[in-house]
C-alpha cells in the first residue's frame, strides 16, 4: 500500500498553527469556552474538506492531470479507478484504508468506524471527545454537526457515494445520527451555512 497517500494533516496543522498564533495576540475573553484554550476550535471545520478525487480522470489518464497530485497517489487512483467507478465496495475499503480520509480529524473525534453499506452508501460512527461536550446544549450540537458535516464532505470527496450516514456517540450512547445526500451537499456554500441548521434540514436526529 503506498505510504501516506492522502493525509492533509500537515496542511491542517499549518492552518491551526496560524490561527493559534493570532488567538494569542488577542486579550483573553473571560467567557470563552475552556476547550478553546486547550483544544483546536471547530468553527472552521465544516468549511474545508479534502480535495475531491477525480476518479473519471484517474480512469482516463495514467498520469496526474491536475498538476497537483503526486505520481504515486495518482498511480494508486488509476489502479483502483475502474473498480471504484463500478461501485465495488471492496475497492472502496481499500481506498479508505489507504487514504485514511478522517485521520486529520483525530483532534476532534475518535474511534472512527467507516462501513460501506453498498455502492451508494457509507456509514460512519465516531466517538465524540468529552472536552467538546457539555458547556451548553447549543455548543454541543454545533460541535457534533461540525464534525459530522466535515466527515461527510471528506468521504464524499474520496468516494463516489450518494449518501453518508454519520452516527455520533459517547460511551456507546447515541448523540446524533444524520444522513447526508450528495445532491444536497453539492448545492451548499459551506462558508455561509450554520452547521446545526443544515444538519437539521438534512433530517439530523439529536438524541438528548
Amino acid at each position: 500500500m503506498p505510504e501516506n497517500l492522502y493525509n492533509l494533516s500537515d496542511i491542517v496543522e499549518d492552518l491551526w498553527g496560524a490561527s493559534a498564533q493570532m488567538e494569542e495576540k488577542k486579550p483573553a475573553a473571560p467567557q470563552q469556552p475552556v476547550y478553546q484554550s486547550t483544544f483546536p476550535p471547530f468553527e472552521q471545520l465544516w468549511k474545508t474538506a479534502d480535495d475531491t478525487v477525480d476518479w473519471t480522470d484517474a480512469l482516463a489518464h495514467d498520469k496526474p492531470t491536475d498538476g497537483l497530485t503526486s505520481q504515486n497517489l495518482w498511480a494508486f487512483f488509476h489502479q483502483h479507478a475502474e473498480k471504484v467507478l463500478q461501485g465495488d465496495t471492496a475497492a472502496y475499503v481499500e481506498v479508505l484504508q489507504a487514504a485514511n480520509p478522517l485521520g486529520d480529524l483525530a483532534a476532534y473525534a475518535q474511534s472512527f468506524d467507516v462501513e460501506t453499506l453498498n455502492a451508494d452508501q457509507l456509514q460512519v460512527s465516531f466517538q465524540a471527545k468529552a472536552a467538546y461536550l457539555g458547556k451548553s446544549e447549543g455548543e454541543t450540537c454545533r460541535y457534533l454537526c461540525a464534525v459530522a458535516l466535515r466527515i461527510a464532505r471528506d468521504l464524499m470527496a474520496l468516494l463516489p457515494v450518494r449518501e453518508v450516514i454519520v452516527l455520533a456517540q459517547q460511551e456507546g450512547a447515541a448523540l446524533l445520527n444524520v444522513a447526508f445526500d450528495r445532491g444536497e451537499l453539492q448545492k451548499v456554500r459551506f462558508s455561509f451555512i450554520d452547521p446545526v441548521a443544515f444538519v437539521t434540514a438534512c433530517g439530523g436526529n439529536f438524541v438528548k
Binding site: T56, A60, V84, D120, P160, R162
Partner: peptide, 18 residues
C-alpha cells in the same frame, strides 16, 4: 471515446449512470 468519455463526468454521476 474509450476511457476519455468517463472524464466528462463527475465520478458519482458516472458510476451511477454508466
Amino acid at each position: 471515446s474509450g476511457n476519455a468519455f468517463a472524464s466528462f463526468f463527475d465520478s458519482t454521476v458516472y458510476r451511477t449512470d454508466m
